[in-house]
């Protein structure tokens, strides 16, 4: 299972407490993980990535294993530690403001 941490607003929207876990069959990529999340929690469609273009929303970031994966290709493999469940995939609302 892939461990995922959502920002607080999306946890509230999906009524999730703490981490969530999703199963991914095949390659563990950003696209596959996001599709698994959206399948389990349809109310999150459009809140992390655009529903039509599937591009990451501008103020969303993806972190894992102390790396910023936001600009990686959606079909790039996520780190082994994420795929194995050792480390969570972090979906983060970017800092904005002053």
């Amino acid at each position: 299972m892939i461990r995922v941490v959502l920002p607080a607003h999306l946890r509230a929207l999906a009524r999730i407490e703490g981490e969530l876990s999703v199963a991914v069959t095949g390659a563990v990529t950003q696209d596959a993980v996001l599709s698994a999340i959206e399948s389990l929690y349809p109310m999150l469609k459009g809140t992390i990535r655009d529903r039509t273009t599937r591009k990451r929303r501008p103020f969303i970031r993806f972190f894992a294993c102390e790396r910023d994966l936001s600009h990686d290709a959606p079909d790039a493999l996520l780190p082994d530690a994420v795929a194995s469940g050792a480390e969570p995939f972090l979906i983060v609302g970017a800092i904005a403001g002053g």
């Binding site: 920002p7 607003h9 459009g46 809140t47 655009d50 929303r57 103020f59 969303i60 609302g93």
Partner: peptide, 22 residues
């Protein structure tokens, strides 16, 4: 940050559920 959500209540605003946002 998170775009558009449409919420709907069927009990006068006591409880809400997200509906379609496409």
């Amino acid at each position: 940050w998170f775009g558009q959500v449409v919420q709907r209540s069927d009990d006068g605003g006591k409880t809400w559920n997200p509906v379609g946002n496409e």
